[in-house]
Amino acid sequence: MTVAKPQKRRSFPRSKVCRFCADSSLRMDYKEPAILRAFITERGKIIPRRISGNCAKHQRELTTAIKRARNIALLPFTVPKR
């Protein structure tokens, strides 16, 4: 049991670096849904920081950007199940 757990974790490596910190040319903007789409799930939810690896500052900015984009129908609030 104790052996299995770390192995399981190793199976899905995640990027630990915040992509916005690593690449300064990557700017988030509520008018650019193409960038924001990388940070929402298929169902339209915002991907948590723990998974996306974003730093706190950028995650906060990202959240407001996504919420603004939702407001002007560039991103969905929800994606209904087919």
């Binding site: 990027s15 992509r19 040319s25 990557l26 990388a38 799930t41 998974i51």
Partner: peptide, 20 residues
């Protein structure tokens, strides 16, 4: 930002699906 945008979906796709 042209370059950054084109590689954006690539990086995100895999680790996130597993994570969920």
């Amino acid at each position: 930002t042209g370059d950054a945008r084109s590689d954006a979906p690539l990086i995100s796709a895999e680790p996130m699906e597993h994570g969920i």
